[in-house]
Nucleic acid binder design. Structure first.
Lengths: 233, 233
DNA sequence: ACCTGAACACCGTTCAAGT
DNA sequence: ACCTGAACACCGTTCAAGT
Protein backbone atom coordinates (compact mmCIF):
# COMPACT_ATOMS: atom_id res chain seq x y z
CA UNK A 1 0.00 0.00 0.00
CA UNK A 2 1.33 3.39 -0.97
CA UNK A 3 0.22 6.92 -0.18
CA UNK A 4 1.33 8.33 -3.50
CA UNK A 5 -1.14 10.76 -5.02
CA UNK A 6 -0.78 9.30 -8.50
CA UNK A 7 -1.21 5.71 -7.34
CA UNK A 8 2.33 4.49 -7.80
CA UNK A 9 5.32 6.05 -9.49
CA UNK A 10 5.04 5.01 -13.12
CA UNK A 11 7.87 7.31 -14.18
CA UNK A 12 11.10 6.66 -12.34
CA UNK A 13 12.77 9.65 -10.70
CA UNK A 14 15.50 11.39 -12.65
CA UNK A 15 17.38 14.64 -12.30
CA UNK A 16 15.48 16.02 -15.25
CA UNK A 17 12.07 15.09 -13.84
CA UNK A 18 13.01 16.52 -10.43
CA UNK A 19 14.05 19.83 -12.01
CA UNK A 20 11.02 20.12 -14.30
CA UNK A 21 8.62 19.32 -11.47
CA UNK A 22 10.36 21.91 -9.29
CA UNK A 23 9.96 24.53 -12.02
CA UNK A 24 6.27 23.65 -12.45
CA UNK A 25 5.67 23.73 -8.71
CA UNK A 26 7.38 27.12 -8.35
CA UNK A 27 5.36 28.45 -11.31
CA UNK A 28 2.13 27.29 -9.72
CA UNK A 29 2.67 27.90 -6.00
CA UNK A 30 5.50 30.40 -5.78
CA UNK A 31 9.13 29.95 -4.86
CA UNK A 32 8.42 30.18 -1.12
CA UNK A 33 6.22 27.09 -1.34
CA UNK A 34 9.06 25.11 -2.90
CA UNK A 35 10.83 23.06 -0.27
CA UNK A 36 12.61 19.74 -0.52
CA UNK A 37 9.67 18.32 1.40
CA UNK A 38 6.91 19.83 -0.76
CA UNK A 39 8.74 18.85 -3.95
CA UNK A 40 9.12 15.28 -2.71
CA UNK A 41 5.42 15.13 -1.91
CA UNK A 42 4.59 16.47 -5.38
CA UNK A 43 6.65 13.65 -6.87
CA UNK A 44 5.17 11.05 -4.54
CA UNK A 45 8.50 10.18 -2.97
CA UNK A 46 10.17 10.56 0.37
CA UNK A 47 12.30 13.75 0.73
CA UNK A 48 15.51 11.77 0.94
CA UNK A 49 14.91 10.30 -2.53
CA UNK A 50 15.63 13.76 -4.04
CA UNK A 51 19.17 13.70 -2.71
CA UNK A 52 19.96 10.94 -5.21
CA UNK A 53 19.55 13.45 -8.04
CA UNK A 54 20.54 16.80 -6.56
CA UNK A 55 23.22 17.23 -3.94
CA UNK A 56 21.20 19.77 -1.96
CA UNK A 57 18.69 22.57 -2.34
CA UNK A 58 21.26 25.01 -3.75
CA UNK A 59 22.00 22.62 -6.59
CA UNK A 60 18.27 22.18 -7.15
CA UNK A 61 17.91 25.95 -7.63
CA UNK A 62 20.95 26.01 -9.94
CA UNK A 63 19.32 23.30 -12.04
CA UNK A 64 16.03 25.22 -12.17
CA UNK A 65 17.88 28.29 -13.47
CA UNK A 66 19.39 26.20 -16.26
CA UNK A 67 15.95 24.85 -17.21
CA UNK A 68 14.77 28.45 -17.68
CA UNK A 69 17.95 29.48 -19.52
CA UNK A 70 17.38 26.48 -21.81
CA UNK A 71 14.05 27.99 -22.84
CA UNK A 72 15.68 31.12 -24.30
CA UNK A 73 16.21 29.56 -27.71
CA UNK A 74 19.11 30.08 -30.11
CA UNK A 75 20.35 33.52 -31.23
CA UNK A 76 18.61 34.70 -34.39
CA UNK A 77 21.54 36.17 -36.24
CA UNK A 78 20.38 39.72 -36.74
CA UNK A 79 22.27 42.51 -38.49
CA UNK A 80 25.06 44.11 -36.51
CA UNK A 81 26.22 43.43 -32.97
CA UNK A 82 23.87 45.95 -31.39
CA UNK A 83 20.68 44.41 -32.75
CA UNK A 84 21.99 40.92 -32.05
CA UNK A 85 22.77 41.71 -28.41
CA UNK A 86 19.54 43.66 -27.99
CA UNK A 87 17.43 40.84 -29.44
CA UNK A 88 19.16 38.21 -27.35
CA UNK A 89 18.63 40.14 -24.12
CA UNK A 90 14.96 40.75 -24.92
CA UNK A 91 14.53 37.02 -25.67
CA UNK A 92 16.09 36.27 -22.29
CA UNK A 93 13.64 38.71 -20.74
CA UNK A 94 10.70 36.86 -22.25
CA UNK A 95 11.92 33.50 -20.99
CA UNK A 96 12.36 34.83 -17.47
CA UNK A 97 9.01 36.62 -17.48
CA UNK A 98 7.31 33.25 -18.00
CA UNK A 99 8.59 32.21 -14.57
CA UNK A 100 7.84 34.89 -11.96
CA UNK A 101 10.30 33.40 -9.47
CA UNK A 102 13.20 33.17 -11.94
CA UNK A 103 14.63 36.69 -11.67
CA UNK A 104 14.88 36.45 -7.90
CA UNK A 105 16.45 32.99 -8.02
CA UNK A 106 19.00 34.00 -10.68
CA UNK A 107 20.01 36.94 -8.46
CA UNK A 108 20.41 34.71 -5.43
CA UNK A 109 22.73 32.13 -7.01
CA UNK A 110 26.16 32.42 -5.38
CA UNK A 111 27.96 31.22 -8.50
CA UNK A 112 27.59 30.54 -12.19
CA UNK A 113 26.01 27.42 -13.69
CA UNK A 114 26.78 25.78 -17.06
CA UNK A 115 23.66 27.40 -18.47
CA UNK A 116 24.45 30.92 -17.29
CA UNK A 117 28.07 30.62 -18.43
CA UNK A 118 26.92 29.51 -21.88
CA UNK A 119 24.50 32.41 -22.12
CA UNK A 120 27.16 34.95 -21.16
CA UNK A 121 29.66 33.39 -23.54
CA UNK A 122 27.28 33.72 -26.50
CA UNK A 123 26.57 37.34 -25.63
CA UNK A 124 30.24 38.20 -25.37
CA UNK A 125 30.74 36.46 -28.71
CA UNK A 126 28.25 38.86 -30.30
CA UNK A 127 30.20 41.90 -29.12
CA UNK A 128 33.48 40.40 -30.32
CA UNK A 129 32.01 39.42 -33.70
CA UNK A 130 30.95 43.05 -34.07
CA UNK A 131 34.54 44.13 -33.75
CA UNK A 132 34.51 45.46 -30.18
CA UNK A 133 37.78 44.98 -28.32
CA UNK A 134 37.99 42.43 -25.50
CA UNK A 135 38.67 45.38 -23.21
CA UNK A 136 35.53 47.35 -24.12
CA UNK A 137 33.45 44.17 -24.20
CA UNK A 138 34.58 43.35 -20.67
CA UNK A 139 33.39 46.70 -19.32
CA UNK A 140 30.24 46.60 -21.44
CA UNK A 141 29.27 43.28 -19.85
CA UNK A 142 29.82 44.72 -16.37
CA UNK A 143 27.81 47.81 -17.27
CA UNK A 144 24.91 45.69 -18.50
CA UNK A 145 25.23 43.65 -15.31
CA UNK A 146 22.07 41.88 -14.27
CA UNK A 147 20.31 43.37 -17.26
CA UNK A 148 21.70 40.57 -19.42
CA UNK A 149 19.08 38.43 -17.64
CA UNK A 150 16.33 40.62 -19.00
CA UNK A 151 15.26 42.25 -15.79
CA UNK A 152 16.20 45.36 -13.92
CA UNK A 153 16.81 45.56 -10.25
CA UNK A 154 13.90 47.76 -9.33
CA UNK A 155 14.25 50.60 -6.86
CA UNK A 156 11.45 48.85 -5.01
CA UNK A 157 8.30 47.10 -6.15
CA UNK A 158 5.53 49.66 -6.67
CA UNK A 159 2.94 49.31 -3.91
CA UNK A 160 -0.35 48.13 -5.41
CA UNK A 161 -2.39 51.32 -5.94
CA UNK A 162 -5.71 51.40 -4.18
CA UNK A 163 -8.68 50.76 -6.45
CA UNK A 164 -10.61 53.68 -4.96
CA UNK A 165 -9.37 56.87 -6.69
CA UNK A 166 -10.32 58.99 -3.68
CA UNK A 167 -8.19 56.88 -1.37
CA UNK A 168 -5.35 57.02 -3.89
CA UNK A 169 -5.49 60.81 -4.06
CA UNK A 170 -5.40 61.03 -0.27
CA UNK A 171 -2.38 58.70 -0.10
CA UNK A 172 -0.56 60.82 -2.70
CA UNK A 173 -1.35 64.08 -0.86
CA UNK A 174 -0.01 62.60 2.37
CA UNK A 175 3.12 61.23 0.64
CA UNK A 176 3.75 64.55 -1.12
CA UNK A 177 4.36 66.18 2.26
CA UNK A 178 7.47 64.08 2.84
CA UNK A 179 8.44 63.01 -0.68
CA UNK A 180 7.36 65.78 -3.06
CA UNK A 181 9.70 64.79 -5.89
CA UNK A 182 8.72 61.12 -5.86
CA UNK A 183 5.05 62.06 -6.06
CA UNK A 184 5.78 64.55 -8.81
CA UNK A 185 7.45 62.10 -11.17
CA UNK A 186 4.96 59.39 -10.25
CA UNK A 187 2.03 61.59 -11.26
CA UNK A 188 3.56 63.76 -13.99
CA UNK A 189 1.83 63.23 -17.33
CA UNK A 190 -1.52 62.61 -15.70
CA UNK A 191 -2.42 66.27 -16.31
CA UNK A 192 -1.35 66.46 -19.95
CA UNK A 193 -2.51 63.49 -21.96
CA UNK A 194 0.22 63.61 -24.58
CA UNK A 195 1.10 59.96 -24.78
CA UNK A 196 3.77 60.17 -22.13
CA UNK A 197 4.12 56.91 -20.24
CA UNK A 198 4.54 58.74 -16.95
CA UNK A 199 1.50 58.85 -14.72
CA UNK A 200 -0.42 55.74 -15.65
CA UNK A 201 1.93 53.55 -13.67
CA UNK A 202 5.25 52.44 -15.09
CA UNK A 203 5.57 50.51 -18.32
CA UNK A 204 8.15 47.85 -17.42
CA UNK A 205 8.98 47.05 -21.01
CA UNK A 206 9.52 50.73 -21.86
CA UNK A 207 11.75 51.31 -18.83
CA UNK A 208 13.78 48.20 -19.62
CA UNK A 209 14.38 49.11 -23.25
CA UNK A 210 15.07 52.76 -22.36
CA UNK A 211 17.89 51.74 -20.05
CA UNK A 212 19.16 49.00 -22.37
CA UNK A 213 19.37 51.39 -25.31
CA UNK A 214 21.01 54.07 -23.19
CA UNK A 215 23.75 51.56 -22.38
CA UNK A 216 24.08 50.05 -25.87
CA UNK A 217 24.16 53.49 -27.50
CA UNK A 218 26.84 54.57 -25.06
CA UNK A 219 28.88 51.45 -25.74
CA UNK A 220 28.53 51.98 -29.49
CA UNK A 221 29.76 55.55 -29.14
CA UNK A 222 32.82 54.42 -27.16
CA UNK A 223 33.53 51.72 -29.72
CA UNK A 224 33.47 54.25 -32.58
CA UNK A 225 35.82 56.49 -30.61
CA UNK A 226 38.27 53.60 -30.18
CA UNK A 227 37.85 53.76 -26.40
CA UNK A 228 40.28 51.81 -24.19
CA UNK A 229 40.41 51.57 -20.42
CA UNK A 230 44.16 52.26 -20.58
CA UNK A 231 43.44 55.84 -21.63
CA UNK A 232 40.69 56.47 -19.11
CA UNK A 233 41.31 54.38 -15.97
CA UNK B 1 19.91 34.73 38.98
CA UNK B 2 20.20 35.61 35.34
CA UNK B 3 22.07 34.02 32.44
CA UNK B 4 22.71 37.30 30.69
CA UNK B 5 26.21 37.59 29.28
CA UNK B 6 26.65 41.18 30.44
CA UNK B 7 25.47 40.45 33.97
CA UNK B 8 22.14 42.23 33.83
CA UNK B 9 20.59 44.57 31.31
CA UNK B 10 21.78 47.98 32.33
CA UNK B 11 20.46 49.59 29.16
CA UNK B 12 16.76 49.02 28.62
CA UNK B 13 15.69 47.62 25.28
CA UNK B 14 14.59 50.10 22.62
CA UNK B 15 13.88 49.93 18.93
CA UNK B 16 17.06 51.86 18.28
CA UNK B 17 19.21 49.55 20.39
CA UNK B 18 17.64 46.49 18.77
CA UNK B 19 18.41 47.82 15.27
CA UNK B 20 21.97 48.92 16.06
CA UNK B 21 22.78 45.61 17.71
CA UNK B 22 21.33 43.77 14.70
CA UNK B 23 23.53 45.82 12.36
CA UNK B 24 26.60 45.14 14.50
CA UNK B 25 25.80 41.41 14.70
CA UNK B 26 25.31 41.18 10.92
CA UNK B 27 28.57 43.08 10.36
CA UNK B 28 30.44 40.69 12.63
CA UNK B 29 28.83 37.32 11.92
CA UNK B 30 27.11 37.68 8.57
CA UNK B 31 23.46 38.10 7.71
CA UNK B 32 22.79 34.35 7.80
CA UNK B 33 23.77 34.26 11.45
CA UNK B 34 21.22 36.93 12.28
CA UNK B 35 18.04 35.35 13.60
CA UNK B 36 15.49 36.64 16.05
CA UNK B 37 16.88 34.09 18.45
CA UNK B 38 20.57 34.96 17.99
CA UNK B 39 19.80 38.68 18.21
CA UNK B 40 17.85 38.16 21.42
CA UNK B 41 20.74 36.21 22.91
CA UNK B 42 23.15 38.98 21.90
CA UNK B 43 20.96 41.46 23.78
CA UNK B 44 20.55 39.15 26.77
CA UNK B 45 16.79 38.93 26.43
CA UNK B 46 14.24 36.29 25.52
CA UNK B 47 13.32 36.21 21.79
CA UNK B 48 9.78 37.38 22.48
CA UNK B 49 11.08 40.62 24.00
CA UNK B 50 12.15 41.78 20.50
CA UNK B 51 8.56 41.73 19.30
CA UNK B 52 7.88 44.70 21.56
CA UNK B 53 10.09 46.85 19.33
CA UNK B 54 9.79 45.32 15.86
CA UNK B 55 6.64 43.70 14.54
CA UNK B 56 8.52 40.84 12.92
CA UNK B 57 11.77 39.96 11.21
CA UNK B 58 10.85 41.79 7.99
CA UNK B 59 10.43 45.02 9.91
CA UNK B 60 13.75 44.37 11.64
CA UNK B 61 15.48 44.16 8.24
CA UNK B 62 13.68 47.32 7.06
CA UNK B 63 14.96 49.11 10.14
CA UNK B 64 18.50 47.88 9.54
CA UNK B 65 18.38 49.27 5.99
CA UNK B 66 17.37 52.66 7.36
CA UNK B 67 20.26 52.60 9.83
CA UNK B 68 22.66 52.15 6.89
CA UNK B 69 20.86 54.77 4.77
CA UNK B 70 21.21 57.13 7.74
CA UNK B 71 24.97 56.79 7.51
CA UNK B 72 25.12 58.25 3.99
CA UNK B 73 25.33 61.84 5.22
CA UNK B 74 23.84 64.96 3.65
CA UNK B 75 24.29 65.91 -0.02
CA UNK B 76 27.35 68.12 -0.54
CA UNK B 77 25.95 70.62 -2.99
CA UNK B 78 28.29 70.18 -5.92
CA UNK B 79 28.18 72.06 -9.19
CA UNK B 80 25.59 70.91 -11.68
CA UNK B 81 23.08 68.08 -11.40
CA UNK B 82 25.40 65.47 -12.90
CA UNK B 83 28.17 65.91 -10.34
CA UNK B 84 25.62 66.19 -7.54
CA UNK B 85 23.90 62.93 -8.50
CA UNK B 86 27.20 61.20 -9.16
CA UNK B 87 28.63 62.26 -5.80
CA UNK B 88 25.52 61.24 -3.92
CA UNK B 89 25.45 57.77 -5.48
CA UNK B 90 29.14 57.23 -4.75
CA UNK B 91 28.55 58.32 -1.13
CA UNK B 92 25.74 55.77 -0.95
CA UNK B 93 28.11 53.18 -2.32
CA UNK B 94 30.63 53.89 0.44
CA UNK B 95 27.98 53.59 3.16
CA UNK B 96 26.79 50.25 1.82
CA UNK B 97 30.31 48.91 1.34
CA UNK B 98 30.87 49.30 5.09
CA UNK B 99 28.18 46.67 5.65
CA UNK B 100 28.79 43.61 3.46
CA UNK B 101 25.26 42.31 3.99
CA UNK B 102 23.51 45.59 3.13
CA UNK B 103 23.33 45.32 -0.67
CA UNK B 104 21.68 41.92 -0.47
CA UNK B 105 19.21 43.04 2.19
CA UNK B 106 18.28 46.23 0.30
CA UNK B 107 17.57 44.08 -2.77
CA UNK B 108 15.40 41.70 -0.80
CA UNK B 109 13.08 44.31 0.74
CA UNK B 110 9.61 43.88 -0.73
CA UNK B 111 8.74 47.55 -0.32
CA UNK B 112 10.16 50.98 0.43
CA UNK B 113 11.06 52.29 3.88
CA UNK B 114 11.06 55.90 5.09
CA UNK B 115 14.83 55.96 4.66
CA UNK B 116 14.87 54.64 1.12
CA UNK B 117 12.02 56.94 0.08
CA UNK B 118 13.90 59.92 1.48
CA UNK B 119 17.06 58.94 -0.35
CA UNK B 120 15.23 58.56 -3.68
CA UNK B 121 13.39 61.84 -3.14
CA UNK B 122 16.61 63.76 -2.63
CA UNK B 123 18.15 62.19 -5.72
CA UNK B 124 15.13 63.04 -7.85
CA UNK B 125 15.28 66.58 -6.47
CA UNK B 126 18.83 66.90 -7.84
CA UNK B 127 17.72 66.02 -11.36
CA UNK B 128 14.79 68.43 -11.15
CA UNK B 129 16.96 71.25 -9.75
CA UNK B 130 19.22 70.72 -12.76
CA UNK B 131 16.31 71.45 -15.05
CA UNK B 132 15.51 67.93 -16.24
CA UNK B 133 11.82 67.32 -16.92
CA UNK B 134 9.78 65.14 -14.58
CA UNK B 135 9.35 62.78 -17.54
CA UNK B 136 13.06 62.33 -18.27
CA UNK B 137 13.86 62.17 -14.56
CA UNK B 138 11.34 59.37 -14.16
CA UNK B 139 13.00 57.24 -16.83
CA UNK B 140 16.47 58.20 -15.65
CA UNK B 141 15.66 56.86 -12.19
CA UNK B 142 14.41 53.60 -13.66
CA UNK B 143 17.51 53.33 -15.85
CA UNK B 144 19.78 53.82 -12.85
CA UNK B 145 17.68 51.25 -11.01
CA UNK B 146 19.47 49.46 -8.22
CA UNK B 147 22.59 51.45 -9.02
CA UNK B 148 21.23 54.34 -6.93
CA UNK B 149 22.17 52.11 -3.98
CA UNK B 150 25.77 52.16 -5.07
CA UNK B 151 26.08 48.58 -6.16
CA UNK B 152 25.63 46.71 -9.37
CA UNK B 153 23.85 43.45 -9.69
CA UNK B 154 26.79 41.33 -10.70
CA UNK B 155 26.54 38.74 -13.44
CA UNK B 156 27.73 36.36 -10.76
CA UNK B 157 30.33 36.60 -8.01
CA UNK B 158 33.76 35.81 -9.44
CA UNK B 159 34.89 32.44 -8.13
CA UNK B 160 37.94 32.90 -5.88
CA UNK B 161 40.94 32.27 -8.15
CA UNK B 162 43.25 29.51 -7.02
CA UNK B 163 46.44 30.74 -5.39
CA UNK B 164 48.57 28.31 -7.39
CA UNK B 165 49.18 29.90 -10.83
CA UNK B 166 49.62 26.48 -12.42
CA UNK B 167 46.22 25.30 -11.18
CA UNK B 168 44.70 28.58 -12.36
CA UNK B 169 46.12 28.15 -15.85
CA UNK B 170 44.74 24.60 -16.04
CA UNK B 171 41.29 25.78 -14.95
CA UNK B 172 41.34 28.52 -17.60
CA UNK B 173 42.43 26.07 -20.33
CA UNK B 174 39.62 23.71 -19.39
CA UNK B 175 37.05 26.55 -19.26
CA UNK B 176 38.23 27.94 -22.61
CA UNK B 177 37.02 24.75 -24.31
CA UNK B 178 33.40 25.55 -23.45
CA UNK B 179 33.48 29.29 -22.84
CA UNK B 180 36.18 30.78 -25.07
CA UNK B 181 34.81 34.32 -25.02
CA UNK B 182 34.47 34.48 -21.25
CA UNK B 183 38.05 33.34 -20.82
CA UNK B 184 39.22 35.79 -23.46
CA UNK B 185 37.80 38.89 -21.79
CA UNK B 186 38.75 37.59 -18.35
CA UNK B 187 42.39 37.25 -19.36
CA UNK B 188 42.78 40.00 -21.98
CA UNK B 189 45.29 42.61 -20.91
CA UNK B 190 47.44 40.09 -19.09
CA UNK B 191 49.66 39.84 -22.19
CA UNK B 192 50.13 43.58 -22.78
CA UNK B 193 50.83 45.52 -19.63
CA UNK B 194 49.42 48.85 -20.78
CA UNK B 195 47.50 49.82 -17.69
CA UNK B 196 44.28 48.21 -18.84
CA UNK B 197 42.23 47.02 -15.90
CA UNK B 198 41.32 43.80 -17.71
CA UNK B 199 43.23 40.72 -16.69
CA UNK B 200 44.17 41.36 -13.10
CA UNK B 201 40.68 40.59 -11.89
CA UNK B 202 37.93 43.19 -12.04
CA UNK B 203 38.18 46.59 -10.40
CA UNK B 204 34.73 46.98 -8.84
CA UNK B 205 35.05 50.71 -8.44
CA UNK B 206 36.09 51.17 -12.06
CA UNK B 207 33.23 49.00 -13.37
CA UNK B 208 30.71 50.83 -11.20
CA UNK B 209 31.82 54.30 -12.31
CA UNK B 210 32.09 53.17 -15.94
CA UNK B 211 28.44 52.09 -15.98
CA UNK B 212 27.28 55.07 -13.91
CA UNK B 213 28.95 57.54 -16.26
CA UNK B 214 27.62 55.72 -19.33
CA UNK B 215 24.12 56.23 -17.95
CA UNK B 216 24.58 59.80 -16.71
CA UNK B 217 26.23 60.87 -19.99
CA UNK B 218 23.36 59.33 -21.92
CA UNK B 219 20.80 61.08 -19.73
CA UNK B 220 22.63 64.39 -20.17
CA UNK B 221 22.60 63.95 -23.94
CA UNK B 222 18.85 63.29 -23.96
CA UNK B 223 18.25 66.29 -21.72
CA UNK B 224 20.16 68.58 -24.11
CA UNK B 225 18.13 67.20 -27.01
CA UNK B 226 14.89 68.01 -25.19
CA UNK B 227 13.94 64.33 -25.12
CA UNK B 228 10.41 63.35 -24.15
CA UNK B 229 8.87 59.89 -23.92
CA UNK B 230 5.86 61.17 -25.93
CA UNK B 231 8.05 61.40 -29.03
CA UNK B 232 9.78 58.07 -28.56
CA UNK B 233 7.42 55.61 -26.82
C1' DA C 1 -1.85 43.57 33.10
C1' DC C 2 2.37 42.07 31.92
C1' DC C 3 5.93 38.89 30.66
C1' DT C 4 7.73 34.59 28.93
C1' DG C 5 8.54 29.53 28.45
C1' DA C 6 6.80 26.04 25.92
C1' DA C 7 4.78 24.76 21.84
C1' DC C 8 3.53 24.96 16.90
C1' DA C 9 4.45 24.30 12.27
C1' DC C 10 7.80 24.38 9.60
C1' DC C 11 12.92 23.92 7.36
C1' DG C 12 17.35 21.28 5.13
C1' DT C 13 19.99 17.49 6.10
C1' DT C 14 22.09 13.45 8.80
C1' DC C 15 22.16 8.95 10.17
C1' DA C 16 21.16 4.63 11.80
C1' DA C 17 17.93 1.07 11.61
C1' DG C 18 15.29 -1.97 8.71
C1' DT C 19 14.63 -4.69 4.49
C1' DA D 1 23.55 -2.91 -0.77
C1' DC D 2 19.87 -0.11 -0.85
C1' DC D 3 16.20 2.68 0.88
C1' DT D 4 13.85 5.46 4.31
C1' DG D 5 11.71 6.86 8.76
C1' DA D 6 13.01 9.13 12.62
C1' DA D 7 15.84 12.45 14.47
C1' DC D 8 18.79 16.61 14.69
C1' DA D 9 19.44 21.34 14.90
C1' DC D 10 17.54 24.93 13.58
C1' DC D 11 13.73 28.79 12.15
C1' DG D 12 9.80 32.74 12.97
C1' DT D 13 5.88 33.25 15.52
C1' DT D 14 1.71 31.99 18.53
C1' DC D 15 -0.37 31.36 22.71
C1' DA D 16 -1.58 30.07 27.09
C1' DA D 17 0.09 29.64 31.59
C1' DG D 18 2.34 31.88 35.37
C1' DT D 19 3.45 35.97 38.16
Amino acid sequence: MTRQADGGRRTPLSRDRVLRTAVALADRSGIDALSMRSLAQELGVVPMALYKHVANKEQLLDGMVDVVVGEIGPPDGGDGWKDAVRGRILATRHALLRHPWAARVVESRPGPTPGTLGHLDSLIGMFRAGGLSADLTHHAMHALGGRVWGFTQELFPAPPPSADPEVRAAVLREAAVHYPYIVEIATAGAAHDDGSVVGGGCDDRFEFEFALDLLLDGIERLHRQGWSSARHG
